[in-house]
Design a protein around this nucleic acid. Structure first.
Lengths: 340, 340
DNA sequence: CTGAAAGCGCTAACAA
DNA sequence: TTGTTAGCGCTTTCAG
């Protein structure tokens, strides 16, 4: 059995209180005692039990994180940033991967609660009633990252999705495109579904371009759906000369679909993605994308959550809107420009 | 403050023991008491404290996982599988992302120890002396996934890297290639560095093909190094007609390097990767790869670890070698075959 | 400065 | 079947 604080105390010839004091770096311990304690700790290879500490301190230094899909480039990058930031402040991550599995999420949320995590980060917005209620009852600070659930009570770290989609579409329009296909997300999502969709429509309307329903498709943010939907888009007559997909994954899928159909990106069709994931630089041609500040998003999420944990009312006051940014790479081209 | 077991007991008019019993599903509780307790629990919205339980049960149901890079397609897929399997058995994951940061790893290992996690999964093999010592002293079950550290004491879930590399190289040879470039890993790694390298060499030797040092480069498994190294390989005269990279990431980097230099895969140069990550299907042309059973690997890792946790001596007996598999896609072509 | 003792919230003998 | 009681390993008053 691992040594306990009592064993250290015995060996050092002091009380457990004193050992506890040196463990916690308190100053009111005479140097010689402190030395003896340290010596005893080393001798025994003693490490304090985080469990026992948590029990009395009522603080676990644990943050529960719910990720929709660990294997997604976007989420794994945010998670990586979250992990790094949390780690810097001495917090550890309990991660739950829920692949469309709401039951699992509910179960995990319960586990987070039982574990008495200090805070919770959620990265998706499809809350059902049960979960929403549960979350509302929970008195653990909760923050949403990269998404915003309907319920206004929770704070979110997001970009202005409407403006970002508007800007992305406008970019295509400025390149001379008028037949612009749209591969959207889930319309039940307000941030990544509705807002981006409305941004797209408004940009077209603003430019006096008719909205063609055949140019509008909705996917599930994943590669495969982008692939499929791009093929459908290309079946329209006349077909779009540019496609805006609301995730890089779908944009890459679209590029592949276009490629497999024998067309060329960007010569025949321009494609712009959304997110700024690692995929953008990895595919050929490199994908232009309306980027979210992914690293920052993770960092800001954790920092705000830690503020909330610390009881900073300010932190829980409202959403944090970060800046989006268009990054041009090789997948978009002026309409009608002659081929190289 | 959250309600405690005592509060439930009071409301239900029973002892805490009884409450504890119904909480743990024991049978020796009369139905009416059980009902009253459940009623009280619901009324209070009581949830048992995992912390307190862990303290007395000396079991946390936590597994610490050390991942080299969360954003890598390969690791995130294993992690996802690990998470899924662990979750099914009621275990939760504490994840640590160490990006080349040995200090951080050491720190985390300490945290895992203080947290009294029930088991530890490590997915990289670059252990320094300090960590090796620490691991040896620790009496928490440890398992390595996808890698095998020098130290024979630890059990690993791996494939036969030597054979896999041998087979991949032989595949290229059978396609008629003789000038086969190699983009290896870190030679300090035995599994993914040395073994794959030796497999490559032996396959060539076996086929009576001279080993050309200029065709051999070593990277860090990441896209960028594959990109750079492929360019270097293409600078040789005559240059290789095929390249075997020991990670899909490097293979994709190589494909991009080849592409950016104006050559075509597979018409000019064939490329084969290693791992079987999601990237293989996402790039164009789709990447042929010597695949590891990634999903399985995560699953087997957790299952073995749980066996070890359960005290199954058998489980700690030796490495688990899973089967590799060559998956042909579009990135390799018979040497000299006429272009389409 | 140092120590005795009272919990943190729960489980597990041991009795009844 | 049910309850009493003694901890799990640590921190934290409160005295000294």
């Amino acid at each position: 059995m691992a040594p306990k604080i009592k064993d250290v105390a015995k060996i050092a010839g002091v009380s457990v209180t004193t050992v506890s004091r040196v463990l916690n770096g308190e100053k009111y311990v005479k140097d010689d005692l402190k030395a003896r304690v340290k010596q005893a700790i080393a001798e025994l290879g003693y490490t304090p039990s985080h469990i026992a500490r948590s029990l009395v301190r009522k603080k676990t230094n644990l943050i529960g994180v719910i990720v929709p899909d660990l294997t997604s480039s976007f989420y794994s990058t945010i998670l990586s940033s979250i992990e790094e930031t949390a780690s810097l402040s001495g917090y550890n991550l309990l991660v739950c991967n829920i692949i469309e599995d709401i039951e699992k999420e509910y179960k995990y949320l319960n586990v987070f609660n039982e574990m008495r995590v200090d805070g919770i980060i959620i990265m998706h917005e499809k809350l059902n009633e049960e979960i929403r209620d549960f979350l509302n009852k929970l008195d653990i600070p909760i923050i949403f990252s990269s998404v915003k659930p309907r319920d206004q009570k929770f704070v979110s770290v997001i970009i202005d999705d409407y403006a970002a989609a508007y800007d992305a579409t406008t970019y295509l329009i400025q390149l001379g495109h008028t037949r612009i296909g749209f591969i959207g997300g889930d319309m039940r999502d307000v941030t990544s579904g509705q807002n981006r969709y409305i941004g797209y429509r408004d940009a077209l309307t603003q430019a006096n371009i008719n909205i063609v329903e055949a140019y509008i498709k909705f996917g599930d943010y994943k590669i495969q759906s982008g692939y499929q939907l791009a093929k459908e888009l290309l079946a329209s007559e006349p077909c779009p000369t540019a496609i805006f997909a609301v995730s890089d994954d779908m944009a890459v899928g679209a590029m592949n679909g276009i490629h497999d159909l024998g067309f060329n990106v960007p010569d025949d069709i321009s494609v712009i993605g959304f997110d700024g994931s690692q995929l953008t630089e990895l595919v050929r041609p490199q994908l232009s994308s309306m980027e979210q500040p992914i690293q920052d998003m993770g960092k800001v999420t954790v920092e705000s959550l830690l503020d909330m944990i610390a009881g900073d009312a300010q932190a829980a006051a409202g959403d944090l809107i970060l800046k989006h940014k268009l990054v041009e790479r090789k997948s978009c081209k002026t309409y009608g420009a002659k081929e190289e």
